[in-house]
Design a protein around this nucleic acid. Structure first.
Lengths: 219, 219
DNA sequence: ACCAACAACATACCGAGCAGTATCTTGTCA
DNA sequence: TGACAAGATACTGCTCGGTATGTTGTTGGT
């Protein structure tokens, strides 16, 4: 019976893959939460398992190692950044406006996905401190590449701003890092208030964006 | 004999204390270096001992625990910041000029004492992640207080700027954090070049300072 | 309808790395 | 010269990443 498809041995559904991805995603979120609360090193695999109400077995069924989990968190964090910022970057407004939108979007992502964004800070650490296997180091290099690509979005809009005369930048790389530094600092001091904070976050993002765009000197 | 002071049993010199302090200072510097290279958690006591060409015994002779070493590094880091920035803050120029000097000085400290300054980032982490003894937590609270006091220097100069109309700030705390975030980001990306870099550092500090003061929008 | 077979976990265990300690040695003072 | 600081050596106990193995539910073939 079961002749829905005559002889389609190829591309067989192979269980509900969606469920697998979801299970992975749940673990990744739990890991991000743990990394934020206890730090990358002090968070244990058991902590992550507890967070999802499970045991080590489940975690290691989906991930090779603790580093592999961290890489997944890192990757997701960068995805969230790109999803929010790249559309603004790709729009066709003057550079100054695009930069404003990008800074605002970046700030919002920082606040709304705090656990993920805090995780990636520690990631740069690990990259420098070595002590990973060859395969892991390869993955890390790739992830660092993604981050560099993201930073490049900000540098390019700065260059565009010099070109269309809406921005004034003496040293594009350094200024780019200054802007991202000001925004990334959110992960150090921002903590979500209990209760509604959507509008509050908007206000914070606006203040930060204003500062990086206009500075503080009265004109 | 030894009647330099008739019967001064009190306040006896008690060996060469300077030597003790120096030994401590050497360990603290070595620890800062290790914390920077391998991260706070992955740096071991043996690493620190190796860095000074010694053994664990020496380290534990001067420090109760690994956390105690970290606290010393943190404290020294804050001292370096205050020594550089507070004189500028206390000068009697217009607020805009003082802020410029403070930002520049802070940036220079970040670069010139990179190991120390990187260490204190992880410190905030620890504070949040608990897992310290009661005594340690008390010390940590004190250190966090020092850091807050330091941040307050920047907030106060911002307020002064609003008062003397040289600065334009909508939200002092947030803008203060934005500025410090932009400058502290140095610890994430600045690495000392081999060879002379004093002038290079000045240039970086100037670009950062210009950006936080004037922003990037062309006027 | 039944049963391999495999995925998706749980349980039990191991061993390395490392903070902390206990003890021993030596140089340096009074 | 004895007493203590300064440091070296040797050892321990525990945490935690990783593994090996056991259990169960689901599925696809017959």
């Amino acid at each position: 019976m079961n002749h829905q498809s005559a002889d389609a041995e190829v591309a067989r559904p192979r269980r509900r893959v969606s469920n697998v991805d979801e299970s992975r995603a749940v673990i990744i979120s739990a890991a991000a939460e743990c990394f934020m609360r206890k730090g990358l090193d002090k968070a244990t695999i058991d902590d992550i398992a507890d967070e999802v109400g499970s045991t080590k077995g489940r975690v290691y069924h989906h991930f090779r190692s603790k580093n592999a989990i961290f890489f997944a968190v890192y990757r997701r964090a960068m995805e969230l950044c790109f999803e929010a910022v790249e559309p603004v970057f790709a729009s066709d407004s003057p550079a100054a406006q695009r930069l404003e939108g990008m800074a605002h979007a970046h700030a919002m992502v920082m606040m709304e996905h705090l656990p993920f964004q805090r995780g990636i800070r520690s990631g740069v650490e690990m990259y420098l401190h070595g002590s990973t296997t060859a395969a892991e180091r390869e993955t890390l290099t790739e992830l660092i590449g993604i981050r560099d690509e993201y930073e490049r979005l900000f540098r390019r809009v700065l260059e565009d701003g010099v070109a269309d005369a809406t921005l004034e930048v003496d040293d594009v790389p350094i200024v780019g890092r200054a802007i991202l530094g000001a925004l990334n600092g959110l992960t150090d001091w921002y903590r979500p208030r209990t209760g509604e904070s959507g509008a509050e976050r908007e206000a914070i993002a606006r203040s930060l964006t204003r500062t990086v765009l206009n500075g503080v000197v009265r004109r």
